[in-house]
Write a protein that binds this DNA or RNA. Sequence first.
DNA 1: CGTTACGCTGACGTCAACGTCAACCCCACT
DNA 2: AGTGGGGTTGACGTTGACGTCAGCGTAACG
Lengths: 149, 149
Amino acid sequence: MTAPTTAPTTDQTTDQTTDLLTIRQMCDAFDVTPRTLRFYEAKELIRPVRDGMKRLYARSDRARLKLILRGKRFGFSLEDIRQTLDLYDRQGSNLAQMERTYALAQDRLAIMEAQRAELDEAIAELQAELRAGAAVIAEVKKAGGAAAA
Amino acid sequence: MTAPTTAPTTDQTTDQTTDLLTIRQMCDAFDVTPRTLRFYEAKELIRPVRDGMKRLYARSDRARLKLILRGKRFGFSLEDIRQTLDLYDRQGSNLAQMERTYALAQDRLAIMEAQRAELDEAIAELQAELRAGAAVIAEVKKAGGAAAA
DNA sequence: CGTTACGCTGACGTCAACGTCAACCCCACT
DNA sequence: AGTGGGGTTGACGTTGACGTCAGCGTAACG
């Protein structure tokens, strides 16, 4: 129980000289505003601890925030993200809950893989279009350079 | 200029028996609402022709709509999409305009490639998490089946 | 010739994801 | 004792992307 083997999830052992960041430090680190962090907290996406009234963000909060921002970049809603975020930390739960979460994560994975496939296709198309565009530009330049209107 | 060699972009030749769809047909085909199509038109993303007052959507409109919806899935704004959409059909333009559009498309491509890299990473992480989750579930099932609390 | 169906045009409503602003608290200086 | 720098909680504003609704046109149907 006390030996951190290979999975340091929510480890208690490493809180030397406070591993906690203030809201401002978080903002600087992740390039977000305080308002955003409070908003995410209101939406129950992160749960910083409190020192009096001040919020303090632990490593797990940073990990969650990283996942949140990534999810956003992929176009998932905050609500979507909140659902699957539970997968990454919530292990203290019953079997049924775990299986539901597992299934949910599988769905997400499928979505992401489909998205990747479509992204590959879109990239290929855009590249082709760029090549064509470059050719046209080159031609116009040659013709235009020789005989301008 | 007149010979369609291998690039059938916006071909005039194929308009047999009206290749035009009504707004409803478009909605059914692309799973969007009429409001959405009118909205896109107001934002100058598509330009259907009119039969009297009714909108009619040609093949080029369908191609554009496909690109629009795809762009949205990747998290681009309609305004972003409108910009780069021009790359795909606009050949009658001056050199400066073409080069701007070209540069814009290159930026887009870079963004999409970065997005793909991050998506790959996210997929890998989620897969790992799923494997771990599956292992935990299996273990719980074995232990729980032998000696329930 | 009424009415039903589809379409059009404003105009206003809504929802997510924050931004902005006011008012307050607390602690540290000086 | 004031003042400055974080931090906090409402509460309202904003922007993008539509939804919704009222009022109208018109073409077809029975």
